[in-house]
C-alpha cells in the first residue's frame, strides 16, 4: 500500500525537522512514551517477554532509524503501529537516547552451551562480526546482538532468510541465505551468550 501524504507537512528550506508535532495532534510527554515502551520491552529496556526484543544498549542510531522506519510504515509491525504513529522526530531522538543508555543484561532464557559453541563457529564463517563487531555489540545502524533474546533473534533470522523481512540494506538477507533452522538457532544461542 502506498501511503500518500495526507499530512501536508511543508517544511521550508530554513526549518529543521520534517514533520512538525502539530501535524499529529496532541503528543504526550516523552517520559510517558518511554514508560509505555517499557510495558513490553522491559522496565530497564531488557525484555522478559517472548519474541519482544530488548532495546537496552542498542546503538542510538539503530533505535532512531528503526523508529522512523516504523513510524513511516516502511517497517510494518502491527503491534507497533498504534505506538509509533504520532511520534515526532524529537520524541524519537529522546527515546533512542534513553534506551541506548541502558545496560544490556543477559536474557532469562536458558542458553544451550553446545549450540552456542557451534554458533560461534558459524558466526565466524558467516562473518557476523564484520558488521556487528566481534563482540556483537553493534554500531550505528547495525543492531546489538549480544544479550538479545534468543526467541527474537531466531525469528528475525528466519524472516531475513525467508525474505519476509528486509533490513535497511538487504545485507542480512544475503548473509543468512540458505542457513538451516538448526544453524539459525545455534547462531542465536551464541549471540545471546555473554561474549568473551
Amino acid at each position: 500500500m502506498v501511503l500518500t501524504a495526507t499530512r501536508t507537512a511543508v517544511v521550508t528550506a530554513s526549518i529543521l525537522g520534517l514533520i512538525p508535532a502539530a501535524a499529529f495532534g496532541q503528543a504526550s510527554p516523552v517520559t510517558e512514551r518511554i514508560a509505555s515502551c517499557s510495558t513490553c520491552h522491559g522496565e530497564d529496556g531488557n525484555s522478559r517477554l517472548a519474541n519482544v526484543p530488548s532495546l537496552a544498549g542498542q546503538p542510538e542510531f539503530f533505535l532512531l532509524n528503526q523508529l522512523v522506519l516504523m513510524r513511516d510504515g516502511v517497517r510494518m509491525i502491527p503491534a507497533m503501529v498504534p505506538v509509533v504513529g504520532d511520534l515526532t522526530d524529537a520524541d524519537i531522538q529522546a527515546i533512542a537516547s534513553h534506551f541506548a543508555g541502558r545496560e544490556a543484561r543477559a536474557s532469562d532464557e536458558p542458553i544451550d552451551a553446545n549450540m552456542a559453541t557451534r554458533g560461534r563457529e558459524l558466526a565466524k564463517s558467516l562473518r557476523c562480526g564484520s558488521c556487528h563487531l566481534a563482540n556483537l555489540q553493534g554500531r550505528q545502524q547495525i543492531p546489538r546482538l549480544a544479550r538479545q533474546r534468543i526467541d527474537y533473534l531466531i525469528r528475525a533470522l528466519r524472516d531475513y532468510r525467508d525474505g519476509t523481512r528486509a533490513g535497511a540494506d538487504t545485507l542480512m538477507n544475503n548473509a543468512v541465505a540458505g542457513v538451516s533452522d538448526a544453524d539459525l538457532g545455534a547462531l542465536a544461542h551464541y549471540a545471546t551468550a555473554p561474549q568473551p
Binding site: 501524504a5 511543508v10 520534517l18
Partner: peptide, 12 residues
C-alpha cells in the same frame, strides 16, 4: 525559496 514535503511514503 524551496519547500520540501513528503509526497509518498511506505514504499520499498
Amino acid at each position: 525559496t524551496r519547500a520540501a514535503r513528503v509526497l509518498l511514503q511506505g514504499l520499498t
